[in-house]
Simulated assay, not measured.
Amino acid sequence: MYLNNIKLLFIQPCVAESKKIRFKAEFSSDVSNIMPYLNSVVKSGSYNSNMPSFTFKKDSRLINIYANDMTVAKAINETDAYSIMDFVKDLINETYDNKNSIEPNYEMRKKPSAFKIYSYLPKKNCKKCGETTCIAFASKLLTGVKTLNQCDVLEEEQYKEKLKSLNDLLELV
Rank of each mutant, 00 (worst) to 15 (best):
residue 92 I to Y: 03
residue 118 Y to V: 00
residue 121 L to Q: 05
residue 3 L to R: 11
residue 145 V to K: 14
residue 117 I to S: 02
residue 5 N to T: 04
residue 76 I to W: 10
residue 94 E to N: 14
residue 67 A to V: 02
residue 58 K to I: 13
residue 69 D to K: 08
residue 63 I to Q: 03
residue 96 Y to N: 09
residue 38 L to H: 06
residue 70 M to P: 06
residue 88 V to M: 01
residue 60 S to I: 14
residue 15 V to W: 06
residue 31 V to G: 01
residue 126 C to Q: 03
residue 146 K to L: 09
residue 113 S to Q: 00
residue 95 T to M: 08
residue 29 S to W: 01
residue 92 I to D: 01
residue 5 N to F: 10
residue 22 R to N: 14
residue 43 K to S: 13
residue 28 S to Y: 07
residue 171 E to Q: 11
residue 37 Y to F: 15
residue 18 S to V: 14
residue 63 I to M: 07
residue 123 K to I: 00
residue 15 V to K: 15
residue 66 Y to A: 13
residue 117 I to V: 15
residue 80 D to Q: 03
residue 114 A to M: 06
residue 15 V to P: 00
residue 25 A to C: 02
residue 132 T to E: 12
residue 92 I to K: 03
residue 28 S to I: 07
residue 71 T to F: 03
residue 69 D to S: 12
residue 114 A to F: 04
residue 86 D to H: 01
residue 31 V to F: 02
residue 8 L to R: 03
residue 4 N to H: 13
residue 171 E to Y: 08
residue 8 L to I: 02
residue 170 L to R: 04
residue 43 K to Q: 12
residue 91 L to G: 06
residue 10 F to C: 02
residue 52 P to I: 01
residue 45 G to M: 08
residue 130 G to I: 05
residue 62 L to G: 08
residue 162 K to H: 10
residue 146 K to D: 14
residue 139 S to N: 10
residue 77 N to P: 06
residue 90 D to Q: 15
residue 89 K to G: 01
residue 37 Y to G: 03
residue 156 E to V: 07
residue 79 T to Y: 06
residue 54 F to S: 07
residue 81 A to D: 06
residue 62 L to C: 06
residue 89 K to Q: 13
residue 154 L to A: 05
residue 61 R to F: 02
residue 171 E to R: 11
residue 60 S to Y: 12
residue 147 T to Q: 12
residue 70 M to Q: 03
residue 147 T to I: 10
residue 170 L to C: 05
residue 9 L to T: 05
residue 115 F to N: 11
residue 93 N to S: 07
residue 93 N to M: 07
residue 161 E to F: 10
residue 56 F to T: 05
residue 95 T to W: 04
residue 80 D to C: 09
residue 25 A to W: 00
residue 15 V to I: 15
residue 9 L to S: 08
residue 87 F to H: 09
residue 15 V to C: 05
residue 148 L to H: 01
residue 96 Y to T: 00
residue 169 L to H: 04
residue 21 I to H: 08
residue 73 A to Q: 09
residue 117 I to E: 03
residue 129 C to F: 00
residue 82 Y to K: 10
residue 64 N to I: 11
residue 43 K to D: 10
residue 113 S to G: 09
residue 58 K to D: 10
residue 97 D to Q: 15
residue 148 L to T: 04
residue 72 V to S: 10
residue 168 D to L: 13
residue 95 T to V: 04
residue 64 N to T: 11
residue 7 K to A: 07
residue 129 C to D: 09
residue 156 E to L: 15
residue 17 E to L: 09
residue 18 S to N: 14
residue 140 K to F: 11
residue 25 A to Q: 01
residue 104 P to I: 05
residue 74 K to P: 00
residue 49 S to Y: 03
residue 28 S to N: 08
residue 71 T to K: 13
residue 50 N to V: 05
residue 27 F to K: 04
residue 34 I to F: 07
residue 159 Y to P: 02
residue 168 D to K: 15
residue 154 L to Q: 04
residue 34 I to M: 09
residue 124 K to I: 03
residue 117 I to F: 02
residue 73 A to R: 06
residue 152 D to R: 06
residue 56 F to H: 12
residue 20 K to M: 12
residue 98 N to Q: 13
residue 74 K to C: 12
residue 12 Q to Y: 05
residue 67 A to N: 10
residue 142 L to C: 05
residue 160 K to I: 08
residue 125 N to S: 07
residue 41 V to T: 11
residue 153 V to E: 14
residue 171 E to I: 12
residue 142 L to S: 05
residue 62 L to D: 11
